[in-house]
Amino acid sequence: MSHMLKAISFLLFGFLFFCSSWAVDDAQPFADLSLQSRYETLTHQLRCLVCQNETIADSGASLASDLRRELREQLAAGKSDDEVVKFMTDRYGAFVLYKPPFEPRTWLLWLGPVLLLLLGVVVAVRVIRKRSLMAIDILDDSDEDRKQSDQA
């Protein structure tokens, strides 16, 4: 059997394992280009559970190739992207999604960067406003000025 299947037993031993192999997707591409691009996008967003830091597009694990085959069949059968993704999460959980959906437990994840940026900008603007009110030519520390503007 494939080398990657051996990886599973390695994982279960709790050993360090590098998933060093990778996959060439040897399936015939879809004739329909839009179907092919949906297929590629989807496989690049789903995480392989065997080699847990690879997408199922790139993983050489045999499970990944099974899942690619499954995905192709479903897309060919006319399933929508959402249906395919639901098929995966129903079986393997949200863990397979490299791009977590926007839901209550990921609110902070998705909004966090924007909040961080806002926070940063507010702080920066406040500092700049405070400093711009000070006399620009004074180079040395002047505690009085500072205290006044702090209270302002």
């Binding site: 599973i8 279960l12 559970l49 045999s62 499970l63 099974d66 899942l67 499954e70 079986r91 393997y92």
Partner: peptide
């Protein structure tokens, strides 16, 4: 072909499921 294993969400062997009388999965050991 591993098709049923996909339905069971298997990602490595061995895995063991406990299925109750109602046909529901009660526990999974990886």
């Amino acid at each position: 072909k591993g098709r049923v294993a996909i339905d069971f969400g298997v990602y490595g062997a061995p895995e063991t499921f406990l299925i109750d009388a109602e046909g529901k999965v009660r526990y999974k050991h990886i």
